[in-house]
Design a binder for these strands. Structure first.
Lengths: 139, 139
DNA sequence: CTCTATGCAAATAATTTGCAAGCAC
DNA sequence: GTGCTTGCAAATTATTTGCATAGAG
C-alpha cells in the first residue's frame, strides 16, 4: 500500500484498519477495475478475514475521499472500483466472451464536450464510455 | 402502436396481448428510455392492469425480437428500454440533479473503432457512451 | 384446443442499513 | 476513552423463475 494513500486516508480522518489496508492493497495490485465480489474472492485467497459488507463500506469510504473511482461497465449489473492513484482519466473495453477487461489509453471526448453542451444546453459534468467486443484469445 | 411493430411481433411467433400492446404504446410515446419502474407507473396512470413481472417479461421478449433496445445509463443501477423503431444509433445525457434524460444526435465514435482495435487487439462489437451533467433548468 | 402469456409467490443478486461489540488513535 | 469500524442479521432494490390459470390464434 502506497505511502501517499496511507496519508490521504489519515488526512481524511478515516482510520487505517486491517481490512481497509487489505482492500487498498488488492485494488492497487489489480490490473483492471474490480467488483466487490471479485475483491472478496481475492481477499479470501490472501487469507484476509473480511465480511462482504465491510468491502462495500470500505469502497464507499475510499470513494468519498476520492482515492477510488466507481464505475459501471457496459451492460454489467454491478459496480467496479479502481484506484485513482496516478491514473489519468480513461476508459475500458470488455470481452463479451471471457469477460477480460482492458484499459484504453485515450479519451476521445474532451473536444466533444463543447459540441454537446451547444446541442443539448446541458452543462456536461461527466461521461462514461465503455466498449465491448472480443479479446485476442476469444476471436 | 405502429402497424409495423404489430407485424413484427406476429411474425416472431409472439402474441399481441393486451399488456404487450400497452407496453409498446407507452414505449412509443416516451421521449427518453424508460426503466421498468417508470413503465409501471405510466401504465398505472393509463389504467392498465399489469404486474411488474409482466413488464420485465415483455421487455425481454421485445428485446429478443429486436424491437426494443436495452441500455444502462451512466452510474444508474437499473436498465432502461426504448423502441428501436426508426431510431438511429445514438447516446444520452442525464441530469445529475433532476434525472432528466435527453438524446444526443450524433455518435462521435464510429471513426474511433479502428484506432481502438489497433490499440487493444480486441475486435470491437459494441459501445456505450453516456454523459451526465446539469440540464438547463437545474443549472 | 394448443401453446404462449400472465399473475402471484418466492427465489436471486447486488447493495444498504441497524445495532452491539471491536479497534484505531 | 471516544468515535470510527466491523460483523452479523435483516432490509432494500432490481430482476428472475416456478407454477397454475387465462387468453391469443
Amino acid at each position: 500500500m502506497k505511502a501517499s494513500v496511507k496519508d490521504e486516508i489519515r488526512a481524511s480522518g478515516k482510520r487505517l484498519t486491517r481490512t481497509r489496508k487489505a482492500v487498498v492493497a488488492v485494488l492497487e495490485s489489480a490490473k483492471y477495475p474490480l467488483s466487490p465480489a471479485e475483491l472478496y474472492a481475492l481477499l479470501q485467497r490472501r487469507k484476509v478475514a473480511i465480511d462482504p459488507v465491510t468491502i462495500y463500506r470500505n469502497l464507499s469510504a475510499l470513494k468519498s475521499i476520492g482515492l477510488v473511482r466507481q464505475l459501471k461497465l457496459h451492460q454489467e449489473d454491478q459496480f467496479r472500483y479502481e484506484m485513482k492513484e496516478g491514473r489519468e482519466h480513461h476508459h475500458h473495453i470488455r470481452c463479451k466472451s471471457c469477460g477480460k477487461i482492458a484499459d484504453l489509453l485515450l479519451c476521445p471526448l474532451k473536444k466533444l464536450t463543447a459540441m454537446i453542451e451547444r446541442e443539448t444546453r446541458f452543462v456536461v459534468g461527466d461521461h462514461s464510455l465503455e466498449f465491448s467486443g472480443w479479446c485476442p484469445r476469444c476471436q
